[in-house]
Design a protein around this nucleic acid. Structure first.
Lengths: 188, 188
DNA sequence: ATCCGTGATGTCAGTTGCTGACATCACCGT
DNA sequence: ACGGTGATGTCAGCAACTGACATCACGGAT
């Protein structure tokens, strides 16, 4: 018999998502999350710096994926093409995870605090992409703007994907949204 | 003799900015801010929902200005042109406020919590602009993307304006950044 | 001139997020 | 058999925030 059940971190994440879904983020106590996971409040804060962080453990993986794809895009690709390649990789990663994404997103949009956290994760992602573009030789201002545009495309496409019952795949929505952005801001 | 010194709210804002600048956001207590303003912690929380909000009272004015300019743009203007008009108005508003903006921005970038708050303010601004575009008849997805692009342009231009000692006016940087974005994401 | 309602402030007690310091104790290698 | 290690627990404490109630100058109504 083992001393502790395995994967305390994962149990905390599950418990948190479930409780946030039932009573909402603000009406859930860290002590309650920990208790449902069979752990202590103190242990929760050893895994997560923050009550909010428990919903964002996937963001580092997402960042690695995106950055790798941007860096690994063919040398001939322009900045925006490299970002598009990154978005393709991200789109593929979300395949089959629509249900989980929906559940999580419902919790996030219901709480201002969690929306804040999500925005800063996206901003960090954008900065990492801009940095990756920099390593490809793209000048700083253009890199930042291209990365920010990519994040805007991601936000819009992701929202459509989560809200829309009909579309099972994220990738086509990403492509579409990038095209929409292009036509939207093209000079008249 | 008056019962209370006037403009408690303003005194709290000044005291907060000063203290955050001296010791940083996390090392400043709400009680300290209130005390420097000659008030009580409880009173602070009557004016501001949050310790962070004390730095963001201007954002509602910014939003009104921007939305009004977008709505009031000539009917012939495209979505992105309406947003550009809004950015012009915003650029004009910041004339002569560079010192204050710098001081405030230094405090904000030094604190993750404050950066979060700033991002959600910008996102709210973006949503308001998208809504304004919607009232101009722009379809929802295009409206969101155009507004997000506008916010990205604002972020980048504002950062350049604050960081760069040479440029006194924000407006030209906004124009430039919009052009940069256009060329950055144009189809190859 | 007196009284009374009002609004900005203060006081107090309580909950919750979060942290530092220290204790515990099964497991694992020596 | 033994000692080190790492994941966990316990406890005390600060600071952010909130609800309930008190205060009291001011200004208008009587």
């Amino acid at each position: 018999m083992v001393r502790w059940e395995p994967d305390g971190r994962g149990r905390l994440e599950q418990a948190a998502l479930a409780l946030f879904g039932e009573r909402g983020f603000e009406n859930t106590t860290v002590a309650e999350i920990a208790s449902r996971a069979g752990l202590t409040e103190r242990t929760f804060f050893r895994y997560f710096t923050d009550k909010r962080e428990v919903l964002f453990s996937g963001s580092t993986m997402l960042q690695e994926l995106l950055v790798d794809a941007v860096v690994g895009a063919p040398e001939s690709a322009s900045a925006i093409e490299a970002v598009a390649a990154g978005l393709d990789a991200v789109g593929a990663m979300f395949d089959g995870r629509q249900d989980h994404a929906r559940q999580r997103q419902a919790v996030i949009v219901a709480s201002a605090e969690l929306r804040e956290r999500e925005l800063i994760k996206l901003a960090t992602l954008g900065a990492a992409v801009a940095d990756a573009l920099g390593r490809r030789g793209v000048p700083a201002v253009a890199a930042t703007l291209t990365a920010e545009a990519g994040m805007a495309v991601f936000r819009v496409a992701f929202e459509r994907w989560v809200d829309d019952a009909g579309s099972a795949e994220l990738q086509p929505l990403l492509r579409e949204s990038l095209e929409d952005l292009r036509t939207a801001i093209a000079a008249p």
